[in-house]
Structures are given as C-alpha cells and as structure tokens.
Amino acid sequence: MNEEKQAAGGIAEKILKTRADQLARTNHSQKPRGKQITVLEFRLAHEIYAIELTHIRTVHPLKEKKPTHIPGTPGFIKGIINLRGEIISVVDLKHFFNLLDQDSGHSSQVIILSSKDMEFGILSDAIHGVTEFQTADIHDSLPTLAGVQLEYIKGVTANGVVILDDEKLLNDKKMIISL
C-alpha cells in the first residue's frame, strides 16, 4: 500500500518538492523572520487558498472520473473517489463555506487531508504550488470574509492568500457525517 501511494503520489510530490526547493532557495537570501510554514496554494472559485503540508497526504487528479455521489449526504460532500483501491470522501469547500459563486464542474484536483482519525479530500479548481510563508506575514483576519469561514481560517497573507486551518477542518464535528 505504501509503495503504491508513493508511486502514484510520486509525480505530484516531485513537482511539489522541486517547487519547494526553489522557493526555499529564494527565501534563503532573505533573513528569516519568525516561524516559517510551508503551504500548498490552490484556487477555489475566485480565491487563492493555502493549506499547510503537514496533513496533506497526496494530491489526486480527478481526470474524467467525477466523484460518485452518495445519496443522503449533505451538499458539501461531493461524493467518494477511488484513491488506489481506497475509498475517500471528497468535500467541496465552496459549498462548505457557503461561497456564493459555486460554479462547479471545473474542479481538477483533490487534495487529500489526513489525520489519525479523519481523512477526506477537498476539491480544488487548480493547484498553484508550494510556497513558504513567515508566520509574521499572516494577518489574523480579514473583515470582508464571510462569518462562516472565519473559524476555519488561520489568517490571510499580504497578497490575499487565505490560509486554511487544517487542524480545525480535520477535527470539526460538522465534517463527520453520521446520520
């Protein structure tokens, strides 16, 4: 199983690693200020989000196979996908965050978030790559963000990237579907 994961996730990881390395190099010249976090940036509707790499298991392309809808689940559960023989549920954050603009159908990638007790994928419209941020550069909140989202957000960077709170998403009771 591990080999399988590595093999399939290998390409994505390789790209991410190269990017991370490049970014790490450029950052090298700058003086590090405070803590640094490494995040994966992705686009969701018209906003750029980022999520720390800590809990990202892999990034899985959706290709032509849409997630299989599971009747009876809340709207933010997009369905289930086959991740190399394993079933993983996929969450549509656009729906979960009540983003008004919900043009679906363009989602191309699933970012698999995983912790000991929880695992799900989140849909993304496009993956932008791996970046590093100084925690000092992350602002606490942005008043323009909708209320429902705030609890799932760690902060916003100067150039408007919304850093999602991966722990909160993974531990949120609302995410567990037990009907």
Binding site: I77, I80, I87, I88, D117, M118, F120, S178, L179
Partner: peptide, 13 residues
C-alpha cells in the same frame, strides 16, 4: 469497502 473515515454512517448505504 467502507466509505472512509469521514462518512461514518449514511442511511441506506
């Protein structure tokens, strides 16, 4: 296969 860690119990499925 089970439905993964997130979908604990879904009626009818």
């Amino acid at each position: 296969k089970n439905l993964g860690k997130q979908l604990k119990r879904i009626p009818n499925i």
